[in-house]
Design a binder for these strands. Structure first.
Length: 825
DNA sequence: GATCCGAATATACC
DNA sequence: ACCGGTATATTCGGATC
């Protein structure tokens, strides 16, 4: 009997005889690479029609067997069990089969039986099934006891795996030990951005201890990290060798799912090389979906870009999620600046002959990318780890998961605690039906009256939507269309053209319960965080916040297993009800509520802080369930402006000055990335001088100075660059805006533009009427060639006009008076 | 040909 | 296709005078 403390980093399953075996790929406490073999039942559920004779039905199902895919597909056993489904207790058949791959064929036969109402859990991956039933959770540490397979036994089975030890598990128990992941970050440089064209010039590898660049482009005085190889083929061989020798747990890249690994594969194929860097000796699996994934068995491929894009980006300040911007914000370091376009052009024009200095810099650039990726991994590892442990799906999946995936995984991995049969993934037809349903009414936003205010209090609901779900027990399992005694109810609201109410049973549903546990855990973590802040605790808090906040959106998402537009609409209706009630309560106490958006209210507290706090307490006493209103902050000043069109106050646009002197800007051009720097900076100065000093006149002088500088062409072009993202394929635009026109130009120039690219352009002066006809790439713009009028009238003035109009300073009517209009400068 | 207005588009707020 | 609705602002592009 062998015994090893180990951690499961990766999971898969293989056919053994007629059934399937789970492989847990991981690391032992001593640092050996391990593969643990284990088994679990493979099954799905049949939900019978009400009149079905269960015993007879079970006997019939039990007899299903057929030859399929070179195997005997058969039902091993059928068990009649008491289960819950959609909140109702039912009797269901658990159909155990010998191989999970046969579930599809067997369920198709069982589906035709007259007794069959529904089939469920046929779309649960066998790895997920294993994790649910055996509770061997990814990234948790265990101890395994079992039989170690000898080299001979492995050979006999044809199991040529690149691990130190293979154990057939007999017993797996929890065991606490510290795991430090051994990672290797990598990055390639190639002559072309497009996969299928060009070749690989360099590969860099890095972690805390290693910095290495492999290249066949030789040059004098190379940095010490650079190792020259003969040619591209040798480069790929060395890369494979290095990984084989170093034996990392994770191979980490940035955008490597869709670039580095597919590129490497393509070039390796060119030399008949196999990228056998996985532990199963099977190379890399490329999973083509809407976005490509590259999976290496046992050596988990982490693509940090996916994680940042799906999960982290919403909490970042960065305007893009490029490695440069993200690393700058999260690890305080940037990429080495080189002109990749120029290098690629030179490579093409001189058939690959770059200057020595350029190559040296290029190699350092390549290395820095791996170094940044490695550091970014260290920073994000607690987040990835906490989410993985919490939702209990393998690291590879969590790395690439979206919010809805995470919410759903969390539900799936908890359903068994409630004896629930898991709802199926929606079919193509169901998705299409859901997509065409009309939108429901969402949150309430109160229109502010434009002006500069003093002494503002802000209250907001703590985790508003999650707490509504919990307090009103909202889920597709608990919803009632007609009121039953004791039901919770929504206010009356318009839903799909009718005035109506929805009702929710008192008996706690399992989704609200999972959510309430989540909120409870977050409370504990928050309390813990008050005592001591650690990266792991912060990451745990972020994971819990992410999951709880995404639950409401998940319910209204057409791809969700537990989709319910009625529930999502009910949550929104309750949110509207409680924000209105809060506004009324505050107004009843004599305060002036000037603004509200979704879960927050702003009102003039008139220097009566204590009274405001007392009111907060009073409101809280009247709130049901776990709902709670918090004091967000007190502010010294707040500015609200008018919409550009119409005489209404603009929603979602304000600036506040806190008592500590910090300015909080929302919605203004200052915080928008599709405005030029000059407009944003000018607005920022104007906002600051209005809020901090209360001096609009001084701000006006500043604005006038900027306008004059513009007219005199003293503003550097870089301040006038407008950045707009290409959100679709270039050809699919109906309306060609400036950024689309520029993207087309870039494509003609051979520059890399694709969906998602941030297009930079400057508007130049000229006779052409349309703006897009005068939009140019920044590098195309000669000094002073920019269109002064455009930047004054379309960029700078719109950003400040609305602020000045609060102080009755008009841009037009100032002509002839003591002060001059901005347009005169 | 100038002008008006809705549609298309991007981005932010919560 | 990969969580929801609410909201502002800009530019295009076609209709209208």
């Amino acid at each position: 009997m062998a015994k090893e403390a180990f951690i499961a980093l990766d999971y898969d399953y293989i056919d053994v005889d007629d059934s399937s075996m789970i492989r847990l790929w991981g690391r032992t406490k001593e640092g050996k690479r391990i593969c643990v073999l284990d088994t679990t039942d493979s099954y799905f559920w049949l939900i019978p029609k009400a009149k079905a004779n269960l015993e007879k039905y079970a006997e019939k199902v039990k007899k299903i067997h057929l030859k399929h895919a070179g195997r005997e597909a058969k039902v091993l056993d059928v068990r009649i069990k008491e289960k819950n489904f959609l909140g109702q207790p039912i009797k269901a058949l658990q159909v155990l089969v010998n191989n999970p791959k046969d579930i599809v064929t067997i369920k198709d036969i069982a589906k035709e039986f007259p007794e069959t109402e529904e089939k469920r859990e046929t779309d649960i991956n066998f790895v997920t099934r294993y994790i649910i039933d055996k509770k061997i959770i990814p990234l948790e540490t265990y101890s395994v006891e079992g039989k170690e397979l000898s080299k001979k036994e492995l050979r006999e089975n044809g199991w040529n795996w690149n691990v130190d030890i293979v154990i057939k598990a007999e017993k797996i128990t929890e065991a606490k030990w510290e795991f430090e992941p051994k990672i290797l970050a990598f990055d390639i440089e190639a002559t072309d951005f497009e996969i299928g064209k060009g070749q690989i010039l360099m590969v860099s590898l890095a972690n805390k201890h290693i910095q290495k660049v492999l290249t066949w482009k030789k040059f004098a005085n190379p940095p010490k990290e650079v190792e020259f190889v003969k040619n591209e083929e040798e480069l790929i061989k060395k890369f494979i060798e290095f990984i084989e020798d170093y034996k990392p747990d994770f191979l980490v890249g940035y955008f490597s799912d869709a670039f580095d690994l597919p590129y490497l594969r393509m070039r390796a194929e060119n030399y008949d090389l196999k990228l056998n860097i996985g532990l199963d000796n099977k190379g890399i699996t490329f999973i083509k979906g809407a976005v490509m994934s590259s999976e290496i068995r046992g050596l988990v491929h982490v693509d940090l870009y996916k994680f940042v894009n799906n999960i982290i980006s919403y909490s970042l300040q960065s305007e893009t999620i490029s490695l440069n911007d993200v690393a700058k914000e999260l690890v305080g370091e940037e990429k080495i600046k080189i002109d990749l376009g120029k290098i690629n052009k030179e490579l093409k024009e001189t058939k690959g002959k770059l200057g020595e200095a350029e190559l040296r810099r290029f190699s350092l650039y390549n290395l820095q990318d791996s170094v940044l990726t490695s550091k970014l991994f260290d920073k994000l590892w607690p987040n990835i780890m906490e989410l993985t442990k919490f939702v209990q799906e393998p690291l590879f999946e969590v790395n690439r998961a979206t919010y809805s995936n995470l919410v759903e995984h969390n539900i799936i991995h908890n359903a068994h605690r409630f004896n629930e049969i898991i709802q199926h993934r929606p079919t193509f037809d169901e998705i299409n039906e859901r997509k065409i349903r009309p939108k429901y009414t969402g949150a309430f936003v109160k229109e502010p009256i434009p002006g500069l205010y003093e002494n503002i209090a802000v209250f907001d609901f703590r985790s508003f939507y999650p707490n509504i779900i919990v307090s009103f027990n909202i889920s597709c399992h608990t919803i009632n269309m007609k009121k039953e005694p004791g039901d919770y109810e929504t206010p009356e609201f318009e839903f799909e053209g009718k005035k109506r109410k929805f009702y929710f049973k008192k008996k706690l549903g399992f989704i609200p319960q999972i959510l309430s546990e989540l909120l409870e855990k977050r409370k504990e973590v928050k309390a813990e965080l008050k005592k001591h802040r650690t990266p792991v605790l912060e990451a745990r808090d972020y994971a819990l916040k992410t999951l709880s906040n995404a639950t409401y959106g998940y319910l209204g998402f057409f791809g969700a297993r537990y989709y319910s537009l009625e529930c999502a609409a009910s949550i929104a209706a309750l949110a509207r009800h409680y924000i209105h009630k809060t506004i009324e309560d505050i107004e009843k106490d004599g305060f002036n509520v000037m603004y509200a958006d979704t879960d927050s209210v702003m009102f003039l507290f008139d220097k009566k802080k204590e009274e405001a706090l007392k009111l907060l307490e009073k409101i809280n006493k009247s709130l049901p369930g776990t709902m709670e209103l918090d004091l967000e902050n007190f502010y010294k000043k707040g500015l609200f402006v008018m919409k550009r069109t119409g005489e209404l106050g603009a929603k979602k646009k304000y600036a506040l000055l806190s008592e500590k002197g910090e300015i909080k800007v929302r919605g203004f051009e200052t915080v928008r990335r599709d405005r030029c720097k000059l407009a944003k900076d000018t607005q920022d100065v104007v906002l600051k001088s209005v809020l901090e000093e209360g001096k609009p006149d001084k701000a006006l002088e500043y604005a006038q100075k900027i306008v004059k500088q513009l007219r005199d062409k003293k503003i550097p072009t870089e301040q006038l660059v407008i950045r707009t993202q290409l959100k679709k394929e270039i050809e699919s635009y109906e309306s060609i805006g400036p950024h689309v026109a520029v993207a087309k130009r870039m494509r003609e120039l051979g520059l890399p533009v694709k969906e998602g690219s941030l297009i930079e352009y400057v508007i130049t002066a000229g006779k052409e009427k349309l703006i897009r006809e005068r939009a140019r790439l920044p590098e195309e713009v000669n000094e002073g060639a920019y269109d002064v009028d455009y930047y004054i009238n379309n960029q700078v003035l719109p950003a400040i006009e609305s602020i000045f109009s609060v102080f009755k300073i008009s841009m037009e009517n100032l002509q002839g008076k003591k002060q001059k209009s901005l347009k005169d400068f």
